[in-house]
Write a protein that binds this DNA or RNA. Structure first.
Lengths: 186, 186
DNA sequence: ACGCATCGGCTAATGCTATTAGCCTGGCAG
DNA sequence: CTGCCAGGCTAATAGCATTAGCCGATGCGT
């Protein structure tokens, strides 16, 4: 190895810093190269192209979110676990809005794995609600929709009124919990 | 007027066709110009720049969605109105996934108006649930989060399992309805 | 009917981006 | 010591947005 400075992971690190500071649209190979102190084409020694870099960023962020989600669910169950999961999810998205936006991508093979793990955690968090098979899948889809929808809208600044967002989110959690009870009866 | 063929609206029409057929990323000024049979810079006589064109597309799509939402809610009330609203929303997004994706943007002044109308319709659809003031705002936020989250995920192809999406969405509707009852009691 | 402003097209030019090709070098393996 | 190659480089191409400045036709006022 000549200069051990750069590596795929290091490139993703720089990419994440750009995303955080300047938003997902500012993620460009030349911007990364500039931060790395390297000519743009050199990056191709570490990443196939911009699309792959985006996918790697997405994977990294989904990984962080997975970690947060699993920590939140750990040692809790039932409503408490669900609330912790939703709160953790939302707070991550709120803390890193650009990162969260950069995570959203058309599904690519790279993201399939970590995506499945994330779904697995949600499934586990729902275990206490006694949902089996397909019912559990439908429930996870609704949970994802609720969490993701709220996170996206909040990150995009789409909630423009003055009302407290914590309160809105607490209502969302109550909504999901109430809905899961109806799911069991169906 | 020289050639009356082009106008801001006509440009948006072409833009929408591109979005539908090739996805939001394919929306580029040169692509629009090619379809219009015109040189790229000519478009600047009708639209300020690409960002504005995107905003206009977004406004147009939000307008269509507003129409669908208001038709769905018209003449119904309570759970029925809510279900119709959610179904209409989802079916629009599913019918035009690229269009729906193109609608999503950081809030710009152009979209504020039609966005407010859309929120107004949701507020009206919730009237039967007896929510006042802030409680209604929180409820609308949750409704938006649920509908938008589901639509985005479905449009992006993020629901990859075989389970019937109609059923998942029906659960989401029951979830929202159940949650709105708890909202009143809070 | 005539002149003229303006609208809406054009070409030329700039600058930023991704991406490919092909070169060069320093360090590690043998 | 020698040769390989990972990992940097420069040069070149091509697609995009955007600006500047030109020019013809249209339609209005006179």
């Amino acid at each position: 190895m000549a200069r051990a400075a750069l590596s795929p992971d290091a490139v993703v690190d720089l990419a994440l810093r750009i995303v955080d500071e300047e938003g997902p649209d500012a993620l460009t190979l030349s911007a990364v190269a500039a931060r790395a102190g390297v000519a743009t084409p050199s990056l191709y020694k570490h990443v196939r192209n911009l699309a792959e870099l985006r996918a790697l960023v997405s994977v990294r962020v989904m990984g962080e979110l997975t970690e947060i989600a699993s920590e939140a669910a750990l040692g809790r169950s039932g409503d408490e676990a669900l609330r912790a999961l939703m709160d953790g999810w939302r707070s991550y998205a709120a803390r890193h809005p650009h990162r969260y936006s950069a995570m959203i991508q058309a599904p690519r093979p790279e993201t399939a794995d970590v995506g499945d793990r994330l779904v697995g955690i949600m499934l586990a968090a729902l275990r206490a609600y006694g949902l089996e098979g397909s019912a559990a899948i439908h429930a996870v889809r609704c949970l994802r929709a609720a969490m993701h929808g709220f996170a996206v809208l909040e990150a995009a600044g789409a909630f423009r009124l003055a009302e407290d967002l914590d309160e809105s989110h607490a209502l969302l959690a109550r909504m999901v919990i109430a809905g899961l009870r109806t799911a069991r009866e169906h």
